[in-house]
């Protein structure tokens, strides 16, 4: 198996990297949309909306992502649908991301001073109007750094989809390892590729956080 050059390995990994990136994007965007719904339910005035959202978050944050992948994979199978790995991967990661983003954003909304709710209420705004015009614009500002930070977790989370057979970066690494018997090089490169995706996100998150801190201290 000496006909595998380093370039061959890199080329094949780069090829699979596309799927890691795509799955990350889908999970992040889809998780963001559902995460907003989770957020709204979580901070709703009515208990019957808050409770399911809380349970949802507890469930997805309190169990392994791998189990969630298995459950979606085999759970959808129960309905007689033969589920392709990419679909199960996408569904599970979207649901998982939604739980985490919903909880992160709840923290941001709750960090907004109570006086903002009261002032806007005293002006006759409904809860939705308060959210839309007063609370969310402020919460959004402080939500950006942790949200970008969490995108790193999403990218890393996609690695687990290799286990249900979705061929992304990690799975490609395993396949190439089996063909080349060079696990040290291959997994080293796989790790480097993940690092190249995640590190800029981590740095951006940290930079934004510092900026927010500075602008906060200035008033």
């Amino acid at each position: 198996m000496t006909d595998f050059t380093l370039w061959d390995i890199v080329r094949n990994l780069l090829f699979a990297l596309r799927w890691t990136v795509l799955l990350s994007l889908v999970s992040f965007v889809g998780g963001g949309v559902i995460g907003l719904l989770v957020l709204f339910a979580r901070i709703a005035k009515r208990r019957f909306a808050r409770l399911p959202a809380k349970l949802y978050i507890e469930l997805f944050q309190g169990t392994p992502l791998l189990m969630q992948l298995f459950l979606v994979f085999f759970g959808l199978g129960l309905f007689g649908i033969s589920v392709p790995a990419w679909l199960a991967a996408g569904v599970a990661l979207v649901l998982w991301t939604a739980a985490f983003l919903g909880e992160i954003w709840r923290g941001c909304v709750e960090a907004i001073a109570k006086g903002q709710w009261e002032a806007s209420a005293s002006l006759g705004m409904s809860r939705l109007e308060q959210m839309r015009h007063v609370i969310l614009p402020q919460a959004l500002r402080i939500a950006v750094p942790p949200t970008v930070g969490f995108s790193v977790q999403v990218v890393k989370g996609t690695a687990l989809t290799s286990i249900i057979g979705f061929i992304e970066l990690t799975k490609a690494g395993t396949i190439i390892t089996n063909a080349t018997f060079q696990p040290f090089t291959v997994y080293g490169l796989v790790a480097l590729f993940y690092f190249a995706l995640c590190w800029p996100l981590s740095l951006t998150s940290r930079l934004l956080e510092r900026k927010l801190h500075v602008s906060h201290r200035h008033h």
Partner: peptide, 20 residues
């Protein structure tokens, strides 16, 4: 930074399959 920006699964594979 290396650990925090790579998946645990890959770290595990690297240690188990790569280090030999």
């Amino acid at each position: 930074e290396l650990i925090r920006n790579t998946p645990f699964l890959v770290q595990l594979f690297f240690i188990f399959f790569g280090l030999p």
